[in-house]
Amino acid sequence: MPETPPKTAKVRALLLAALAAVTLLTSGCAGWVRDNLTQAPTPWRRIQPTALPVTLPDSRDFPIVAARMRDTGTVYKSYVVALGNPTVLPGENRLTVDVQTLPDSLFGALVQPPRVFPVPLYTMETLTETTKREFPDMRIKVADGARRNRYGDYDYVTAQDGENSCVLAWQLITDHKRTLPERIEAIRLDYRVCGVGSNIRALLAPFEAMTLTLPETVLEVQDLGGL
């Protein structure tokens, strides 16, 4: 009498394979959502100032009014700190921090969202456009030389009218040799503040005194000379 068990096992295996295929196919159809959605920025959500990855010195003129954050994919986290504005000028005083981390999976490396900030951060054209928008009807001057805060050199623009002064400062931290931890690809900082009077250094003081408080330590540059 011929043996039959192998035939049953084959049929069973075929059925299982077919079931798996159908499951895979139908789950793909039913659950398919455009893949770019995971790469789009989430809406801004409010956070407590204590949840910010940055600590600013206490300031009577520029207190923290609100803090918000959003994610773009798994790679970018963006934070906006709205600061008090002691002037009557339009526009919010703010510090923006974008943290770019390295993807933690092969898939993440393959599918990355577009960079949330341009590099270079500004060109002469975009800077002109931005300063016109931020500081309408004010005298604008691009600083000749960079200044240095705890994390390296940064550039800035000043704007002035009869009573007030404003600064726009920006910085891209990419130094992996000393400053940045391994997991962080880059940190972008953008700081816009207006105050009464003409003391530019006082306006830049919070930007120069701030400390980054990310989960991994961001080291400060050693040499703070030249301030």
Partner: peptide, 10 residues
């Protein structure tokens, strides 16, 4: 009106 919504909310 001055586009300072965070302060406005406060």
């Amino acid at each position: 009106e001055l586009k300072r919504p965070s302060e406005a909310e406060a």
